[in-house]
Nucleic acid binder design. Structure first.
Lengths: 105, 105
DNA sequence: TCAGACGGTTTGCAGTACAAACTAGTCTGC
DNA sequence: GCAGACTAGTTTGTACTGCAAACCGTCTGA
C-alpha cells in the first residue's frame, strides 16, 4: 500500500459532507444567489419543512458556513440567512471537486 | 402552496440517495469504467475499507444497481462486481441531474 | 501443527436526517 | 377580554446509516 493510483473515485470520498447533504446543498445554493434570504423564502423555494430548514441552518451556522440574523419586522420575528465568506468558499470548492469527477463523461 | 416556483435548489432534494453517498459514488464510478471489477481492485482504487465495500456493495445489489459474482480462483474466493443496466442508468441520470444544477456557474 | 495471511462479512456504535410535536407570540371575532 | 386560529420558527423522538473493529472460514509456510 505504498503508492496507490490516484483514481478519480477517491475524490468522492473527500467531498465535504456538510455541503454534500442535499437539503443543505439546496439551502446553500439559494443563499449563493442572494445577499440575504428569509426563512419563509427558503421554505417556499426549497420545499423543505420548517423543521428541516431550522436544523440544517443550525448546522451550517455551527460550521461557519452561514450567518443568521434575527430581527423584528413590526411585531413579528423574521430570521434571515446569508452565506459567510467561508461558506461561499466551501460551496465553490465542493462544486469544483464535483465538476472534476465529471470532466470526461 | 399551490404553484411554487421551480427552483434549481429542488433538484438536489430529488437526487437518488443510493447513488449520492460518496462511497457508493466511488464504487459505481469505478464499475462504470470496466465490465467487471474485483473486490481487491475496488479496495485498492477507492481506498475504502473491506467492511465498507462489502456493506455498500450489498446495498447496491439490493437496489439492483450492481450484480455480484462469486467464484473460486484455484482455492481462493474472489468476488466481482459489475453495474447492471439499471445501475448504469441510475448513475447516468444522477450525473445529469447534478450537472443541471451546475450549468450556469 | 499452528501462526499468520487472505478475502470478505457481521456487528456495535455514533451520528444524522426527518417530520411531528411543541413553544412563543400575534391577530381576529365576538 | 378571551378563545381560537395563525405565524415563525425550535425541539424532540425515531428510524436509518455509514463506519471501522471484530470476526469467520480457508489457505499457506515454516
Amino acid at each position: 500500500m505504498t503508492d496507490e493510483p490516484e483514481h478519480i473515485a477517491r475524490r468522492f470520498l473527500s467531498l465535504d459532507r456538510m455541503v454534500h447533504e442535499p437539503a443543505r446543498l439546496a439551502i446553500m445554493t439559494v443563499l449563493a444567489e442572494a445577499e440575504e434570504v428569509e426563512f419563509r423564502f427558503l421554505e417556499a423555494v426549497t420545499g423543505l419543512t420548517k423543521g428541516n430548514i431550522s436544523s440544517h441552518a443550525a448546522k451550517l451556522e455551527v460550521a461557519g458556513y452561514i450567518s443568521v440574523r434575527k430581527e423584528f419586522r413590526g411585531k413579528v420575528p423574521v430570521t434571515s440567512y446569508s452565506l459567510t465568506a467561508h461558506g461561499r468558499e466551501a460551496l465553490a470548492s465542493y462544486r469544483a471537486n464535483l465538476r472534476a469527477t465529471m470532466e470526461p463523461g
